[in-house]
C-alpha cells in the first residue's frame, strides 16, 4: 500500500532534483564563462517543450521502443535505490533488490540506446554508441570494482544496510575508506556522461551522438530519463559513501555537494578522446582500485 505513494513520490523527487541540479549546472557554467546564464528552471522548460512538439519520423518499432527501454531502466533504478534511512518512506522496492541488481539496471539504458540507434541507422548515432560502448569497457571495471569493495567492506549487498552502517561523519565510507571513493569518482563522472568523459554525445564531433535522430517527444523522454538516472546515481553514491540521508533536505544538500564536486571537475577539464578515456580508466582508477583491494582486504 505504501508503494502506491512511494513510487510517484520517488519519481517526482528524482525528476525535481534532476532539473534543479542541471538548471543550476547551466548557471554555474555560465558564471564560469562570465555570462549570466539561463534561469534555473530552464531544463524543465526545455523538457516540457519537447513533450509538446511533434514526432514525425519513424525508423521502425525499435526506434520507439528504445527510449521506452531506457526510461524503464531509469525508473526501475530509481525505485530500487532507497532514498532515506531510518524511515519506512521513500524506500521503493529496495527491500526486494540490492546493490548487485542496481548495477545491472544501470546498464539497461545504454542497451536501449544501442537498440534504438541501431534501428535508425544514422552513422553519427552509431558512432556515438560505439564510443559509448568503448568507454563502458573502460569505466565499468573500476566502477564495479569500487562497488564490490564497498560490499566487501560492509559484508552486505543491501544498500539500506550499508547506509545504516554509517550513522555519523566518522563512519562514512568517504572517511573510513577514501581510496574507494577516489576509485569510483571518475568512472561515476563518466557514467553521468559529463566532461571530460563526454565522448558519446559530443555535439560538434558526432552531432549529439545517439540522440542525433531524436527530436520532439522521444527526445523529451531521453532528457527525462537522463536527468532521473543521473540523480539515481547521485543518490546511490550518497548512500554508499556519505551515509545516506534521514530526510529529503539532507538528501538534497548531500546530492548538491556531490554534484558541485563533479560539476567543478567537469568544468575545468576538456574532453578526452575515446581511447584516452579508456587508457585513463585502465591506468589510474583501476590502479587505485588494485591498491584499494589490498588495503580493504588485508589491512
Amino acid at each position: 500500500m505504501r508503494a502506491l505513494i512511494d513510487v510517484p513520490l520517488m519519481l517526482l523527487v528524482t525528476y525535481t532534483m534532476g532539473f534543479f541540479m542541471y538548471g543550476f549546472y547551466r548557471q554555474f557554467m555560465a558564471r564560469i564563462q562570465n555570462r549570466r546564464g539561463p534561469p534555473i528552471w530552464q531544463n524543465l522548460y526545455d523538457n516540457l517543450k519537447f513533450f509538446s512538439k511533434s514526432e514525425t519520423l519513424s525508423h521502425g518499432p525499435m526506434f520507439f521502443l528504445g527510449p521506452m527501454i531506457m526510461m524503464a531502466g531509469a525508473v526501475t533504478t530509481v525505485l530500487f535505490i532507497p532514498m532515506l534511512k531510518d524511515t519506512a518512506w521513500l524506500q521503493g522496492f529496495s527491500a526486494s533488490g540490492n546493490l548487485i541488481l542496481v548495477m545491472f539496471l544501470m546498464v539497461v539504458g545504454p542497451l536501449g540506446n544501442a537498440l534504438a540507434v541501431g534501428a535508425s541507422g544514422n552513422p553519427f548515432g552509431v558512432m556515438g554508441v560505439t564510443r559509448g560502448l568503448t568507454r563502458l569497457m573502460g569505466l565499468e571495471v573500476p566502477f564495479f570494482l569500487g562497488l564490490a569493495l564497498i560490499m566487501v567492506q560492509y559484508e552486505t549487498v543491501s544498500i539500506s544496510a550499508i547506509m545504516a552502517a554509517q550513522p555519523t561523519l566518522a563512519e562514512w565510507t568517504l572517511v573510513t575508506n577514501p581510496l574507494i571513493f577516489l576509485v569510483v569518482l571518475l568512472p561515476f563522472i563518466a557514467s553521468l556522461n559529463a566532461s571530460p568523459f563526454d565522448v558519446v554525445g559530443a555535439p560538434v564531433e558526432v552531432y549529439s551522438g545517439p540522440r542525433v535522430e531524436f527530436g520532439g517527444r522521444l527526445l523529451g523522454i531521453l532528457m527525462t530519463q537522463n536527468m532521473m538516472l543521473s540523480m539515481a546515481k547521485y543518490v546511490l553514491v550518497v548512500a554508499l559513501f556519505m551515509g545516506g540521508a534521514s530526510n529529503l533536505l539532507e538528501l538534497f544538500v548531500k546530492v548538491f555537494v556531490l554534484f558541485m564536486l563533479t560539476a567543478s571537475i567537469s568544468a575545468v577539464f576538456p574532453r578526452l578522446r575515446t581511447e584516452q578515456a579508456v587508457d585513463f580508466f585502465w591506468r589510474i582508477p583501476l590502479g587505485l582500485g588494485v591498491v584499494a583491494v589490498i588495503l580493504t582486504l588485508w589491512i
Binding site: 564563462q33 555570462r35 549570466r36 526545455d46 555535439p203 549529439s208 542525433v212 527530436g215 520532439g216
Partner: peptide
C-alpha cells in the same frame, strides 16, 4: 551565443541537428 551577448539567458541555445531545433 557566447559570453558577450549570451543568448542562453533567453533560453536560446544551439541545437546539434535539425531534428532537435525549433
Amino acid at each position: 551565443m557566447t559570453s558577450r551577448y549570451d543568448a542562453e539567458r533567453f533560453g536560446i541555445i544551439g541545437a546539434a541537428t535539425p531534428r532537435q531545433a525549433d
